[in-house]
Amino acid sequence: MIMDTRYQGLQFVSNMLLLLAIMLSTEHGWAAEWLLPIDELQTLAGAGNAQAQFSLGVAYEHGEGVEKLPKEARRWYCKAAAQGSVDAWYNLGWMYVNGRGVPRDDDIARYWLEKAAASGNAQAAQILDMIPGRRTARNGCAHVATLPWVQDRCEQLQCQGIVRLVEKLSEEYDLDANLVLSVIRFESGFNARALSPKGASGLMQLIPATAVRFGVKDIWDVEQNIRGGMAYLRWLLAFFKGDLVKALAGYNAGEQRVVQYRGVPPFRETRRYVKQIIRAYGKSTHRYDLRWLDADRVSPPLLSSREVQTAEAQPEG
């Protein structure tokens, strides 16, 4: 009887805390979106509405109207956070400080809570005073597509499917989804049947030699093509120790050319290619893991997906 009373008391406290969280969220202004049918909410979120994205994250976090899926909650919070949603910043911090569907990480929690606190969220400021952690550049959203142009570019379902697949695979390859999508944008324009005059194929424009090098058996299979391109990107990032400028130049012209010229080769196509992707992605470095250089992962360096095309090009004068 005592145990039952204690359990009921804990359950009451838990319910009150959840109610308080809902009241606080309503206070921040997402209640109107939250009242929408879930299919309308998903449509609005998919169209880029930050308020709907945050509300959809809440729905997935608590299993309201949809299956309870913490990773989906994080995905929509990340999208809303990229658009400046203070509520999404706070909820991401809350997820990471409590390990709610994600591994507990006080550093990532601090990243988001500091942003929320700086924007006037008093609860975030209070939590910051109670947790350890240090300032970090990691935010737990690297595997979510958040660049504004992705939303504008991928209105069709086929393109949206490519984005979701990249998000899924980017966690496996530890690559930023935004980087991979930027490469796909300039390699193939999201055309899965793209074929260059030199035989580079698919979304990530692989040539047969690169496909073989990274274990791609069907170069026209969308997932295999993306996997091959991502494996090569990871290898290049390890080879050039996170220098994205050199890694992208290697993807376009071949790592041997980058080594030969000690940087971006003096080819107009390569320089334009690197400049455009860096501008679209917004960064010039990326984390790397030297284990991707292991001989068991790839064979010795061969021609890149683009080296065949640039080998005959003349350096700019």
Rank of each mutant, 00 (worst) to 15 (best):
R104C: 02
W112H: 08
L113T: 14
Q42A: 13
Q51C: 10
Q158F: 12
R100E: 01
V163W: 09
R110T: 11
A117R: 09
Q126V: 09
V102G: 04
G101T: 04
L128G: 10
A137V: 15
R100I: 02
R110I: 07
P132E: 11
V66H: 00
D107L: 13
Q42I: 02
N49I: 07
Y96V: 06
A137T: 13
I131R: 03
K115P: 10
E72D: 05
A137Q: 06
E114F: 01
G99C: 07
L69V: 00
T146I: 14
A109F: 08
N98C: 01
Y96I: 08
A117T: 12
W112T: 08
A50D: 01
A81I: 08
V97G: 01
G133M: 00
E171W: 00
R75M: 03
L56P: 10
E64I: 12
E172D: 08
S85T: 03
A122Y: 06
A124W: 05
V166F: 02
C78Q: 08
D107E: 12
G65W: 01
P70G: 00
A52H: 01
V102H: 07
G48A: 02
P132C: 00
Q123Y: 13
D87W: 09
E67Y: 05
C154F: 04
Q123S: 14
W89S: 12
D107I: 10
I127G: 01
G161Q: 14
A137W: 12
M95A: 13
V97A: 01
G120L: 04
D152G: 11
E67M: 10
Q42D: 07
Y90R: 04
A88T: 02
A80W: 09
T146H: 10
R134L: 12
T146R: 13
R110M: 05
R74F: 01
V102A: 02
Q83N: 10
Q126R: 15
P148F: 07
Y60S: 00
R134W: 06
